[in-house]
Amino acid sequence: MADCSEIGLMLGPFEDGELEPHEMQEVARHLARCNDCEKLLLDYGIVGRELRTLASQPALPAPEAFAQTVDARIAKLRVPWRRRSALAFRGWGEQMGAAFASMALAATAAVVTILLLSPAARVYLTRQPAASLARLETKVGEPRQQLASAESPVAVSTPGNSEAIISRLESNIPSVALWSEPQDGTTVIWLPDQPQQ
């Protein structure tokens, strides 16, 4: 038979129903004939209820209702004008940033278009590479370089800083010379007379 000291240790679990069946029976038989332990069990019961009361959480509304309640309370709050203006400018700044980026892109495309359409660019793009530049310049003063043959049209372009760009040259003369003076860019077409038959 257990004494009060051993039963006292089991009163808490007994109150909570956590003892084994035979322990529950032993505690119950002891309480039937021991007033001190019965009183102590009552005290345990009162303390337990008090603790459960303190530990209980207030019931929360449903998540949707809670969110609506929070929104309603926020709406009632007066937002300072500085805060409001800062929010407005932040959103406006993002929009304007995107707009300016788009405008910068469009402006770049327009500048490139203008440059490509400019007369200088067109002249540069249409100018053909003059492979015979050096060969022609060595002939300055001696117009003997033959660039065109009889009955055969030639397409030539005078090079460098020459004042003329020749795209077509046709002649019945057996030999035609073409060169450009490198110092001042003057272009010369030389058409020697045919020898007398």
Binding site: V123, P143, E163, A164, I165, I166, S167, R168, L169, E170, S171, N172, I173, V176, A177, G185, T186, T187, V188, I189, W190, L191, P192, D193
Partner: peptide, 20 residues
């Protein structure tokens, strides 16, 4: 016709044709 040519001459520029 002795010669036919298509060309672009710089504004205020000079082309020289010679030989005859």
């Amino acid at each position: 016709p002795l010669m036919t040519t298509d060309l672009k001459l710089k504004n205020h520029g000079i082309l020289i044709v010679g030989g005859p």
